[in-house]
Amino acid sequence: MLGSSLPSTLFTFDSGTQSRLSPDLESNSSNSISFNAKRLFPAKNLAFIKWRTHSSARTPETVLSEEDMKKWEACRQVFSRFEFTKEEEDKILGKAFGLVHSPYWGEEREVAVPELENVNAVFDYLTGLGLSDDDLIKILKKFPEVVGCSLENELKMNIQILEKQWSIKGKSLKNLLLRNPKVLGYIIDCKGDCKALCTRCWVRF
């Protein structure tokens, strides 16, 4: 079960235990999603937590059931081939599925629990484009949200646009994705009439 309540910086579990989550993990690398209930922020970070709680940069309190936690952990395992740290894995999944704020999504991304089948499908598709694990690491660092993009309606559709409309294929396609992986998540072409979706618009291409 997944739900939201009043804004907070807490990541809350059904068992009643709590783990603190910084909405912006890049700004404070010591603050990460932790599934170990005993692992809370050290005392030296309490001032930071207090500031976050009362700042405008807040994320809604999110409740994950034990089943949701198992799904999250299973998706975490997919990243083991890339040798990311657990904190990096959590940041990628968090940004991809709305548990960590990402300017890329704006206000449109609803909090969701990642499904292993979908995450695997995204990686299988990207690998099928000729991208190596090293390539995927570079893409995930630049664009972690790709894991949360729709395979059919975004990734595949955008690759077709690049190949058919722009004749970008093979090595050229690979180089483009390494340079600008966000193209995989574009959903609109405003054609100069701004729709306020600049982070996901082909105008950036």
Results as ranks from 00 to 15, higher is better:
2 L>S: 04
2 L>Q: 02
4 S>K: 13
12 T>Y: 15
21 L>M: 14
22 S>K: 05
22 S>D: 14
25 L>S: 14
29 S>H: 11
32 S>N: 11
33 I>R: 13
40 L>E: 11
59 T>C: 09
60 P>Y: 05
60 P>W: 01
63 V>E: 11
63 V>D: 08
64 L>V: 12
65 S>V: 04
67 E>G: 00
67 E>K: 09
70 K>V: 14
74 A>N: 14
75 C>M: 08
75 C>I: 05
78 V>R: 10
80 S>M: 08
84 F>G: 07
85 T>G: 09
89 E>K: 14
92 I>D: 05
93 L>V: 12
99 L>Q: 06
106 G>W: 08
107 E>A: 08
108 E>L: 11
110 E>Q: 13
115 E>W: 03
120 N>S: 07
122 V>E: 04
122 V>C: 10
123 F>T: 01
124 D>C: 01
125 Y>W: 04
125 Y>G: 02
134 D>S: 15
138 K>T: 13
139 I>V: 13
141 K>D: 12
148 G>S: 02
150 S>T: 02
156 K>C: 01
157 M>Q: 12
158 N>S: 02
163 E>V: 03
163 E>H: 00
166 W>A: 13
166 W>G: 00
167 S>N: 15
174 K>C: 09
178 L>H: 08
178 L>F: 09
185 G>Y: 00
186 Y>R: 00
189 D>L: 06
191 K>D: 11
191 K>A: 13
192 G>A: 01
193 D>K: 13
197 L>D: 07
198 C>A: 06
200 R>F: 04
204 R>A: 13
